[in-house]
């Protein structure tokens, strides 16, 4: 269970990006966070695994308080939090297998990591997961030889290799074409069910949010102003979330071109 309470993030001395935010995610549900650019979605996600340092408040994952961890303790906690990125964030010059195994770096010895002597069970798990998402035959290919959708699949498998207790996805489909984008969203939903894994997804595309997730959280100016089932997201709620922002035009079920 992920429990965020009274979370504040302020960059420098300006207006806080996240304002006394509370959010609880239980069970293996797929939760999407929508909101216009600058609403604080990405900051929220990065506060959870501390890629961004929260200013105050508390975040607990299965009863571990994350906000005060340092050094090795923080790294141990991060192992339990998988993350998928908008730009895939793969190491282009490494093979798909190495990219996938880099999700295990927190677990294996430095020697094994340097020599690429991965434990047998890790390799087996990697092949199973890659088989599941359809990229097993690329194991020896370099990551930059793959297409966008395939690269994001590598990103997903890398995160799952961590055996995470929660999966964070930061705009996982924003760099993909509409068809691939739907495939990745479907994959995330199915994997969540199969692996009994809660998934938290930042997303611009409201149509995909409604289609593929169990619960939608709407953010505006650092606050949560909507939190309900997808069916409850009506035009009025949409207007409150997106009013007066250019993202409103894009939010009406249209896919993004980027």
């Amino acid at each position: 269970m992920l429990k965020i309470s009274d979370l504040v993030k302020r960059y420098g001395g300006g207006e806080p990006v996240l304002k006394n935010l509370d959010l609880t995610i239980e069970g293996e549900s797929v939760v999407s966070i929508i909101g216009s650019s600058g609403a604080g979605k990405s900051t929220l996600l990065r506060c959870i695994n501390r890629l961004v340092e929260p200013t105050s408040g508390s975040i607990t994952l299965n009863d571990t308080e994350l906000t005060r961890l340092r050094g090795a303790e923080l790294r141990r906690a991060r192992r339990k939090i998988g993350m998928v990125f908008q730009g895939f964030n793969l190491v282009d010059r490494l093979t798909v297998m190495e990219n996938v195994q880099s999700g295990r770096l927190g677990y294996i010895s430095t020697w094994a990591a340097l020599m690429r002597r991965y434990p047998k069970e890790d390799i087996r798990r990697a092949f199973e997961l890659m088989e599941r998402v359809g990229i097993a035959h690329y194991a020896d290919k370099r990551a930059d030889e793959l297409s966008g959708g395939e690269r994001q699949r590598v990103g997903v498998v890398r995160a799952l290799m961590q055996k995470p207790e929660i999966l964070l996805a930061d705009e996982p489909t924003a760099s993909l074409d509409p068809k691939t984008s739907e495939q990745i969203m479907g994959l995330l939903r199915d994997l969540s069910r199969e692996l009994k894994l809660p998934v938290l997804i930042n997303i611009h595309n409201v149509h995909e949010a409604k289609e593929y997730t169990d619960r939608i959280v709407g953010m505006r100016y650092g606050r949560i102003i909507f939190d309900d089932l997808p069916a409850a997201l009506d035009q009025e709620a949409m207007d409150r979330i997106y009013s007066g922002s250019p993202a409103a035009d894009r939010a009406g079920g249209l896919k993004e071109a980027s």
Partner: peptide, 15 residues
């Protein structure tokens, strides 16, 4: 970006 991703997996600085 890959650096950020690997930091997020809990890998040590050296790795």
């Amino acid at each position: 970006r890959p650096v950020e991703a690997l930091e997020a997996t809990g890998a040590s600085r050296f790795k």
